[in-house]
Computed example of a mutant assay.
Amino acid sequence: MAALMVAGYHYLGTPTPHFWGEIELRDFAPFLHEISRYGWLGVEFFFIISGFVICMSCWGRTPAQFTVSRISRLFPAYWCAVLLVVVLVLAARMGHWPAATRIDPRTVLGNLTMVPGPLGLELVSKVSWTLWVEARFYLLMAVLLISGLSYRRMVAFCGAWLLGGVIALEVHSPLLNEFVLSRYTGLFVAGIVLHLMHRFGQNLLLWLLLSFAWCYELTVLEFRVADHVTTSSSEGRPSWVVCATVLTLCLGLLALAGVGPLAGLQWRWLVTAGGSLTPFTSSTKASEFPWPRA
């Protein structure tokens, strides 16, 4: 569902996607365009799911095992995606077709590391910016694994992470934000807390932690909403109320799957579909800092 939301945003929700030619999609298919322009929230949904799934997959593993599992899960598919884009761009050049992406050997090599942004390079696959966010989340989890995972340590970690996000926003520290991911802290923490409920059962402390994480996230969601203001579109600024509602429904769906009546759902096609997806898709790249620039 998250992947379809993001794909819908790129194909139907942006003001005039270049592949539709001169057609104004909001005039041709106004209903599809209206609902799809909020599809970038699928990225946020991915991050909530990551909090749940990564906490589940790293439990009982050593830092080395967790690192190997993440590298083997992400890098082969990511390398294929990057190299396919390179092949497509080269084919476009040979055919004298316009190519939106400009590549050179240095850019390709930097992109294969999955961290081209910090290296001062452009993304070959523009939608893979989320992987750098995910990688920093994995790093935090790996550090936690060094001391060993337990219920108490994970609860303390979630509380400390939320506090770190608040402090990063308060002091406007780019360095601190690189580590605490202020814009997405509440999403990851919400996913982790839902997994703790799934593994250890529900209690008042976990519900309070989930509530605080969600209040935090819906507050900083304003920064992501501001990233998706389309000056060339008559709709202009997305509605924060709609965004908050959609994102809350996404959290509710995961809660139903993790600790609710959908927890026992084991349809084979759902398992296959979920196992074949990685969070490569994304929407417009967020700015580097979690606060508005002057």
Results as ranks from 00 to 15, higher is better:
residue 282 S to A: 15
residue 18 H to S: 10
residue 39 G to Y: 14
residue 250 C to D: 04
residue 206 L to Y: 02
residue 174 P to D: 00
residue 25 L to E: 09
residue 102 R to F: 02
residue 1 M to C: 06
residue 236 G to S: 14
residue 176 L to K: 00
residue 113 T to I: 05
residue 1 M to N: 09
residue 62 T to W: 09
residue 48 I to G: 02
residue 243 C to T: 11
residue 27 D to C: 03
residue 9 Y to M: 04
residue 216 Y to M: 05
residue 187 L to W: 05
residue 183 R to M: 08
residue 259 V to H: 03
residue 287 S to D: 06
residue 21 G to F: 09
residue 257 A to V: 04
residue 215 C to P: 05
residue 214 W to H: 08
residue 10 H to N: 12
residue 193 V to I: 15
residue 52 F to E: 03
residue 231 T to S: 11
residue 267 W to S: 00
residue 53 V to Y: 14
residue 139 L to H: 10
residue 33 H to A: 07
residue 100 A to N: 12
residue 31 F to T: 14
residue 261 P to I: 00
residue 158 C to L: 04
residue 157 F to Q: 03
residue 219 T to R: 09
residue 225 V to R: 14
residue 139 L to E: 13
residue 116 P to T: 11
residue 232 S to T: 14
residue 199 R to E: 05
residue 199 R to C: 08
residue 149 L to I: 13
residue 151 Y to G: 08
residue 196 L to K: 03
residue 240 W to S: 12
residue 224 R to Q: 14
residue 265 L to G: 00
residue 118 P to T: 15
residue 197 M to H: 07
residue 237 R to V: 14
residue 210 L to R: 06
residue 243 C to A: 11
residue 186 G to K: 00
residue 228 H to T: 04
residue 260 G to H: 03
residue 50 S to A: 15
residue 114 M to L: 15
residue 229 V to K: 04
residue 29 A to C: 08
residue 97 W to L: 13
residue 118 P to F: 02
residue 179 F to Y: 13
residue 209 L to E: 13
residue 116 P to W: 07
residue 100 A to K: 02
residue 204 L to E: 13
residue 49 I to T: 10
residue 182 S to D: 09
residue 192 I to N: 00
residue 39 G to T: 13
residue 22 E to K: 13
residue 129 W to V: 13
residue 40 W to I: 12
residue 130 T to G: 15
residue 188 F to W: 12
residue 217 E to V: 05
residue 114 M to E: 11
residue 61 R to L: 14
residue 89 V to M: 06
residue 233 S to R: 06
residue 67 T to W: 07
residue 36 S to T: 13
residue 232 S to W: 07
residue 157 F to Y: 14
residue 104 D to C: 13
residue 90 L to R: 10
residue 280 F to S: 08
residue 9 Y to E: 03
residue 50 S to N: 12
residue 223 F to K: 09
residue 228 H to A: 02
residue 66 F to K: 01
residue 66 F to Q: 01
residue 176 L to F: 01
residue 275 G to M: 04
residue 177 N to R: 01
residue 35 I to E: 06
residue 246 V to Q: 00
residue 16 T to V: 08
residue 164 G to N: 09
residue 271 V to C: 05
residue 241 V to N: 01
residue 10 H to Q: 13
residue 196 L to A: 01
residue 207 W to I: 04
residue 98 P to R: 15
residue 34 E to G: 02
residue 216 Y to V: 10
residue 217 E to W: 01
residue 286 A to C: 04
residue 186 G to L: 00
residue 84 L to E: 08
residue 17 P to M: 01
residue 77 A to N: 02
residue 171 V to N: 00
residue 108 V to C: 02
residue 30 P to W: 02
residue 217 E to G: 06
residue 92 A to S: 11
residue 150 S to W: 12
residue 72 S to Y: 05
residue 201 G to T: 13
residue 168 A to Y: 00
residue 45 F to S: 10
residue 255 A to L: 07
residue 19 F to E: 06
residue 227 D to Y: 09
residue 6 V to Q: 11
residue 283 S to Q: 13
residue 40 W to G: 09
residue 284 T to V: 15
residue 27 D to A: 09
residue 160 A to C: 10
residue 38 Y to D: 10
residue 139 L to I: 10
